[in-house]
């Protein structure tokens, strides 16, 4: 196979993959399912800050842009803010619990789609994956909890699940 053939093959593959991706994104399956048919928590509110298809394709760009605005310029509007995404989208599932990003078989809004698309999701190694209201008192660090952490009842690295890469 010469170089030209290889380039052709690669181009064809890229176009094919891209079109599959577009078809998948256009299959809107109702508010409770993501693009791949996974059941996701029902979001709060009537509609997202951008049209769903736009968000599916571009949410990372919006988040990245907003991230730098907030970090460096202190602009903290709710539009495109990750905290606000979480406030609406990380809602309790059928079992009444908010699914966490890094738990086994996560039903978290972000991780279902990222898992099936095999896209690494590293926002939540640092950012909260659920609204602050849902933090139980025990999870909000308080002086009396600090000693328990030392005794080993809080083991961060055990809870961490690398399934979503």
């Amino acid at each position: 196979m010469n170089t030209r053939q290889i380039i052709r093959l690669l181009t064809a593959t890229a176009i094919l993959l891209w079109s599959f991706n577009s078809i998948a994104a256009s299959q809107y399956t109702g508010p409770n399912r993501d693009a791949n048919g996974n059941i996701v928590p029902t979001p709060k509110g009537e509609k997202c800050v951008e049209p769903t298809a736009d968000m599916r394709a571009n949410h990372m760009k919006y988040l990245l842009h907003k991230r730098d605005k907030t970090m460096h310029e202190g602009i903290r509007t709710k539009q495109h803010s990750l905290v606000q995404c979480i406030n609406c989208h990380a809602t309790p599932g059928a079992d009444g619990k908010i699914s966490r990003v890094f738990e086994e078989d996560s039903q978290h809004f972000c991780s279902t789609c990222h898992a099936s698309a095999s896209v690494k999701l590293d926002c939540f190694e640092c950012h909260a994956d659920r609204p602050v209201e849902s933090f139980s008192q025990s999870q909000i660090p308080a002086p009396n909890r600090r000693s328990e952490a030392v005794n080993g009842s809080i083991k961060p690295h055990v809870a961490y699940n690398r399934k979503v890469q």
Binding site: G74, E125, H127, A128, V132, F135, I140
Partner: peptide
């Protein structure tokens, strides 16, 4: 180390450096 249950107003994570933010989230608020 790997952290869990960080607060929404104070994102923190393994392998990065951090320090007093002068409570920047409070200042901005």
């Amino acid at each position: 180390e790997v952290l869990t249950d960080q607060l929404p107003t104070a994102p923190r994570g393994k392998g990065t450096v951090e320090s007093c933010t002068l409570c920047v989230h409070k200042v901005d608020r």
